[in-house]
Simulated scan of single mutants.
Amino acid sequence: MPKAQETVLEIDLKSLEHNYNYLRSKIAPTVKMMAVVKAFAYGSDSVAIAAKLEKAGIDQFAVAYTKEGENLRAGGIEKPVMVLHPQSHNFQNIIDNCLTPSLYSKHILTEFIKTAKELKLQDYPVHININTGLNRLGFAAEEIDDVISIFKNTSAVKLVGMYSHLGASEDLAEKEFTLSQIGKFKEISEKIIKAFDHKILRHLCNTSGILNYPEATFDMVRTGIGLYGYGNSAEQDKILKPVGTLKTIISQIHHIKAKESVGYNRGFIAKRDTITATLPLGHADGINRIYGKEKTAVLINGKDAPIIGNVCMDMLMVDITDIDCKEGDQVIIFGKERSAEKFANNAGTISYELITSISQRVKRLIID
């Protein structure tokens, strides 16, 4: 890959294809796969990611909000797109863009049916979210009879899918909780299936669910973080390939004497004569202040360079005292050579938060 001449997020579509094929190998050929491309495809480029996956054979996509689905359609994506968290004022746009809403409450269900009737729609496809313990969105078990009745009394919409969210599928210490979620989903979904004559897709597993609970893949799985190269375990991270690599360069090198300070609020006081490098990215680019004060490090010429002091809005400083480097040299923040998981964990957060935080002002470079 080319050397960085500026701050850039490289998006490797070959790695994406590798991850997709690996996750596909973990499910039966009859099980469909839904790719989660919300939040700019986990901080990368949603249209480029979706286009590659569509070509590779993905079955469906999921986004969080309507605008994200609109952007996929504008980018030429044709496969079904489910909106996980629609709002009623977006229903017209959902229908105009042939998006599939996930309906999660009686209010949102009845409001969507009202809109569909006003537009004289017939059998518009929808999914429902069933709450099995995450307690975030979704219908409770005791609401299901009413939900069935509502669907049976309208021809404007058609229930084509139902799903739930696993809350701790990556944590085997919470296996009992996960198995209880799987059991609740199975019980509720079977009740719904018996109430209708047509096929209704069931989907429950996320990336960690695919890898840890293969018995719960049902008709379709949803995968997000795994597609981007992270499997929530060291073992899986060795197999998956990070899609995004954040690179930058050294803007300037400073020689700091012992007891001198670096950055705002004198966030770093040199204990010895120190050489520092200033890099052209900061918390406005998604490298937040939590990564400062030597909690984590970037990679320069194969060596760790701790981030020192307080991260600035547009810049951060690193300690290069023991690294042979010069102004203009490339710096790896995270990617294949420097795991986003390790970078994030060292600062007490997770790879999801790190990679989805990368600002849109950072240049994206698509590599295929």
Rank of each mutant, 00 (worst) to 15 (best):
K158H: 11
L240Y: 08
I225R: 04
I210H: 07
F196D: 12
I249N: 08
K241F: 04
L137H: 10
V243Y: 08
I200M: 10
L166W: 02
R202K: 15
H203Y: 15
I193V: 13
K247C: 00
H203S: 13
L246D: 02
S164Y: 02
I148Q: 10
L137M: 13
R222P: 06
I225E: 12
L166A: 11
I225V: 13
L227K: 02
P242I: 06
E176P: 05
T223L: 01
L166M: 14
T207K: 03
I188D: 12
S208V: 04
E143A: 12
K191S: 11
R202Q: 15
L246P: 08
V221Y: 10
T245C: 09
I210F: 01
T217N: 15
A156R: 03
F139R: 07
I193Y: 09
A168K: 14
E176G: 00
S208Y: 06
G224K: 05
K184C: 03
L227W: 05
T248R: 05
A140G: 11
T245H: 00
S180L: 07
G167N: 14
A234M: 08
L201C: 03
L201R: 08
T248W: 00
L159S: 08
D171C: 04
Y163E: 14
F139I: 04
A234Y: 02
A156F: 08
S164M: 03
T178L: 01
S169C: 07
L204H: 08
Y230V: 02
S233L: 03
L240E: 03
Y163Q: 13
I250A: 04
D145P: 01
I250K: 00
G138W: 06
G231A: 06
S180N: 13
R222K: 09
K152T: 04
V157L: 09
E143K: 03
Y213V: 08
K194I: 04
E176Y: 05
M162V: 00
I144Q: 10
D237T: 01
A156E: 08
I239C: 04
K184L: 14
E143P: 01
K152V: 02
A156P: 06
L201V: 14
S164A: 15
K152S: 09
F218L: 10
I239Y: 02
E215N: 11
